[in-house]
Design a protein around this nucleic acid. Structure first.
Lengths: 165, 165
DNA sequence: GCTTGTCACTATGAATTTCATAGTAATATG
DNA sequence: CATATTACTATGAAATTCATAGTGACAAGC
């Protein structure tokens, strides 16, 4: 995609959007952060078609956010993992999550995931700083726990996906 | 767009992406945060076609991020402004900017915009907390200054846009 | 040794979206 | 009365997306 407005600009937002400015791409990244490393898990949980997943993973790899790791030869099978650049995207996803929780859901729907801030042992809240201790949140100092309802939703998606094959 | 994976999920990221999961949408929001409130400014600076701008603004209005304000009757003319929900999106853009500056540009290209943290009077850095005083950054406590190179880029885009009509 | 299952995709074609180019409508300005 | 300003709309070709189906390589069970 040649693109004079985003490739040749100094604007970091435009630059970023050429790499992650797509719904499926962000959903794939969400899954990688959620430790879904296999193609089928990503496909099932994002709801994308296999072509979409293939295309996004390929582009993410080209852009340096994702790397493939062989976990099986014969047949050749890969797992997808975040690189340093991919891991660095976490604050964006955290901010997007905070906005989504605050502005895209009714109050009675609960949180999908609750984070515990491991450095202080208490609830981290929505960030960017821990609501319990005030320190900036880093992904490696976080323990995630899915709300039962959200966990069930994911389990159901996986079952539905497997059943449809 | 009926969408069983993003409309019916508890995941705030998926919810958010149905509203802002698109390159043009994010670029339009960037312009609104940059205080471009007129249709043509947005069109010129994003590089989108008028249909794209129309469609995104309409959707953003429907989703409650943007409101139209009449600034002229006869002919009827509107300006586009962020609502509270739209303003609340700022941390996402800030995080995206930080990631873009850090990972989508070569070191020798400078920053596009530098922020001064008004509460401490010093450089705010890339956030989410002020690099000078450590406090969380809020948009209304920030003064933005465009790098001369970036300002020239924007001026040139505006000139090119006007010349092409 | 043959069927069934697993995993990661690819193939196909219709439907939708995007893009470039051009044009319109209402009014102000010189 | 001609030109400029502003905010769009129209059109059709090109590209992308989607749903549905299928493939290839192997493992595991019987």
């Amino acid at each position: 995609m040649k693109d004079n407005t985003t490739d040749q600009t100094l604007c970091p937002v435009a630059r970023a959007e050429t790499e992650v400015g797509d719904r499926w791409t962000v959903l794939v990244l969400r899954e990688l952060f959620a430790r879904s490393h296999r193609f089928e898990e990503i496909q099932a949980q994002t709801g994308a078609t296999p072509q979409m997943v293939t295309a996004r993973l390929k582009k993410l790899e080209e852009d340096g956010l994702v790397e493939r790791r062989v976990y099986n030869k014969h047949p050749l099978r890969h797992e997808y993992h975040l690189t340093e650049k991919g891991e660095a995207f976490f604050p964006v996803l955290l901010a997007l999550r905070a906005w989504g929780e605050a502005w895209c859901k009714s109050r009675k729907e609960g949180r999908a995931v609750n984070y515990t801030h491991l450095t202080c042992g208490k609830a981290a809240g929505l960030g960017p700083v821990c609501e319990s201790c005030g320190e900036p949140i880093h992904r490696n100092e976080l323990a995630a726990e899915r709300a039962p309802k959200y966990q069930r939703e994911r389990d159901a998606r996986w079952e539905a996906f497997k059943a449809s094959r």
